[in-house]
Design a protein around this nucleic acid. Structure first.
Lengths: 194, 194, 194, 194
DNA sequence: CATGAATGAGGATTCATTCAT
DNA sequence: GATGAATGAATCCTCATTCAT
């Protein structure tokens, strides 16, 4: 195995190639040969950086989930008002899911994952929910949302609506993603149906 | 192959066994032998009813999607007010996803599916969105929701929130599903965050 | 198993159906279901008359070889002169091989056959050669062929030429079989090339 | 797949091993594992060189048929007189069929072959017949055979007699092949029975 | 007697992984 | 370090055979 020092660069390259291949073919459909070819290296070289297909998958999963969590955190932190925060999340969500949607779905077959990665995954999800809950808590303090709002359910509503919107746009709607009216989505979440 | 007349019963039995096995192991992890054993029959018998593992999967997918669509339709139709309709959907959603969640996730790897099944799947999704949009339209007429509400986005919000809630309860929350406060969820959707 | 008394008729029916199917698909390609369907009976019924696919094949082989041997014997016996005898053989050969050629080829994979059937087959071949050798012997006595002719080689020449002619006509030549000039073939055999 | 440059050697090795196994067990009886073992390689390696059992079979068939055709051409070309040419053919035929007889028989189940290979096979047969016809034509010019001889039938007679002789020696006669009196066979063909 | 639904042994094929170069 | 030819374990599927009806 290669000393950890110089590994970083190529490791990331392989992971990015693998994300594309896993997304296109699913876990079992993704042959190591495809991944190597996509990364522009030999089949054997992948094994210098990852000890098995499965561990490569798990590394990617962790990596992606962390990327997602961090991006979301930043989206929230960068917004001034709660509305702006959610707006940022909507934009980031669309962008991220557009690139990783398939991978996310593969990842959801949580049943096939190891305990270790499963915990990581669930933990990350929980952390994301916490981010939102804290955001709501802050919004309550600033009086931007009603004070009797259940924070868990609010988080649910935001996450669910944003995700569902992405799904519909990506799977059902042929239009490009750049003309999305994020403001309108956020409006529905904030104002509700009534 | 067995005449279509008498096939129905055993076909359904196999499909139900297969849903369990697919859910537990994923598509590629689900060996035909497991499925046969789960259905209490011999391996070869599965092939009397489905011409391949893949087509078995597709049949199940169609079947599940249709079951879901029909259940949702009924949930909406059985409610008097819009609030009650959404409440019904929430209950049905929780119940259905609890039994099929894993399968639904496997199914979402839409990329690996045939054109035919993919169209069926997308079509069913579209129909479901239509159900909700029509519900919103009716609600507008009755003045239960504001008249400037975008129907598509409203559907997004309802579907997304209900689904996300289920996911959180099923994956992250160890509590049983029967003490869910569906009313609270619906409240958030209807009143929004503010 | 069915009492041998009334078996004869249906047994022959099955064998004839099986010859057609074996000829069309080869031994391993011929499914018992095809054979049953071709004979217009149920799959299980075939097993009432033959204890296995393999033994069915062997029975057919014996049957066909015997049919061929008998037909050839008759062809020889029915001719007055040697030339006429060979002429009859040529006609019978063409007719028989046209119906059984593929089966004959399948049968030639002697290696896969049991010792028993192999001996029967080889014995029948030997008997056929004997028929021809006796014919030649008779012809020598009548002065129709030269007296220094090797009987074995003469048989070889007759059998080989007639068979090869059939093969060419059946495999390479699209013309129907009824306008064959058997006299010309026999001439070549009798007069030689010179 | 391995680059075509360096494939040649091992490909031929596998084909030769496969000829032995196909000859011994027939097409369906020949397990890929046997073939691999016979070639002294792993099962998977065969698939690096041939995409399926069937295509391996077809490649062998083409290869064998071409080998046969070329050997026969040379036999004819190397003879001075027509008699010598046929003599050469008889020797080559015996030698080749002794090594390939079983495979040739398997190959004759032309019905199961693909259109492509079938055409190749039939074409090769036709070419062989042409070789003989041209030989006869030349013999006519040199006055070695009578001028009214039908070339097609003459070819038939030569091919058939030589093949039939081989069959008899290989299948029915326990004697070794080296004491064959090829001259006697050729005599019968050239002088005829009379 | 006849049937055909059910069975499971058997074999072609795939692909993650190894290791000699 | 990098490679890709070789490997064989693992699995889908076929079909001869059985046996309950």
């Amino acid at each position: 195995m290669i000393p950890t020092a110089s590994r970083g660069g190529k490791q990331i390259e392989i992971m990015n190639a693998a994300i594309r291949v896993f997304s296109k073919h699913g876990f079992d459909g993704a042959k190591m040969e495809y991944i190597a070819k996509e990364a522009g290296i030999g089949k054997g070289t992948v094994y210098e950086y990852f000890k098995s297909k499965y561990s490569l998958f798990e590394e990617i999963l962790k990596y992606s989930v962390d990327q997602y969590r961090l991006g979301l955190k930043q989206s929230i932190d960068n917004g001034q008002t709660t509305e702006e925060k959610i707006l940022n999340c909507s934009r980031f969500n669309t962008q991220f899911l557009n690139n990783h949607m398939d991978f996310v779905h593969i990842a959801m077959q949580v049943k096939i994952l190891s305990e270790d990665i499963r915990h990581h995954h669930i933990a990350a999800q929980s952390v994301i929910i916490e981010y939102y809950k804290e955001m709501i808590k802050g919004a309550k303090d600033k009086g931007e949302v009603r004070s009797d709002l259940d924070e868990e359910l609010a988080a649910c509503c935001i996450i669910g609506t944003l995700d569902q919107f992405c799904k519909q746009r990506i799977f059902l709607d042929p239009r490009p993603l750049d003309d999305i009216d994020h403001q309108a989505i956020v409006d529905v979440v904030i104002r509700g149906l009534r």
